[in-house]
């Protein structure tokens, strides 16, 4: 099993790497090279930081075009984590108005800090659906995952989303064919997150 983590100069990937190794993935590579990305069994798009900066870095390195070919045409499985998930959506209002990769019909807006504490930090419950591949083997009960973010995704269409509630429902995860995203950090979510990552490794 070879998992390539997309390298674009942002994001804390150390814990993702050590988690994948803990789960027995032999080959964990960090790269922004087309050939290497295309040689992966699975791709992870990480991300910590701001949306505008991230998408600029991605375009600057031509990664958007690489991923279009690898993910949309070659159908290689990809998992976006946190900001990486948001980048798979259509747009974000962080740093002005920015377009995302547009693989998923979702838009990203800031939490209303007059209603809730922002950032949303800590373990929160996701209303998981165990018919989805990401949650294979989970019980159909709200399950705790670790979040840390100030912007959240909304979607008006069906993207197999599972919701988390923080004063209001927002998209905690989605999956459509080979494309999946999680707003939370599975690599920081104890065994619940380990199980989800194992599902991405085994089921996609």
């Amino acid at each position: 099993m070879k998992i390539v983590i997309v390298e674009y100069g942002m994001g804390n990937i150390r814990s993702i790497v050590s988690t994948l190794q803990y789960l027995g993935v032999q080959d964990v590579v960090l790269s922004s090279d087309f050939e290497i990305l295309n040689s992966a069994d699975k791709i992870i798009l990480p991300g910590v930081g701001s949306f505008g900066k991230a998408i600029t870095q991605i375009r600057h390195r031509n990664i958007d075009n690489y991923l279009n070919e690898i993910v949309l045409e070659n159908k290689k499985p990809i998992l976006g984590i946190c900001l990486g998930m948001q980048l798979l959506g259509n747009s974000s209002t962080e740093d002005g108005n920015n377009k995302g990769l547009g693989y998923i019909n979702g838009y990203v807006v800031k939490f209303d800090n007059s209603l809730v504490k922002v950032p949303h930090v800590g373990f929160n419950q996701v209303k998981v659906n165990n018919k989805l591949k990401l949650y294979n083997g989970f019980n159909d009960i709200p399950t705790d995952f670790y979040f840390t973010h100030s912007f959240r995704m909304k979607s008006d269409v069906e993207i197999n989303q599972c919701y988390c509630n923080y004063q209001e429902d927002f998209v905690a995860s989605f999956e459509r064919d080979n494309i999946a995203g999680v707003q939370f950090h599975p690599e920081l979510s104890q065994t619940n997150g380990l199980k989800l990552l194992k599902n991405f490794i085994d089921k996609f």
Binding site: F138, T143, Q190, L194
Partner: peptide, 13 residues
């Protein structure tokens, strides 16, 4: 109000 862990580590590796 603390998070619950559903899985045992031994099941995962």
């Amino acid at each position: 109000n603390l998070s619950n862990r559903v899985f045992d580590t031994l099941d995962l590796i």
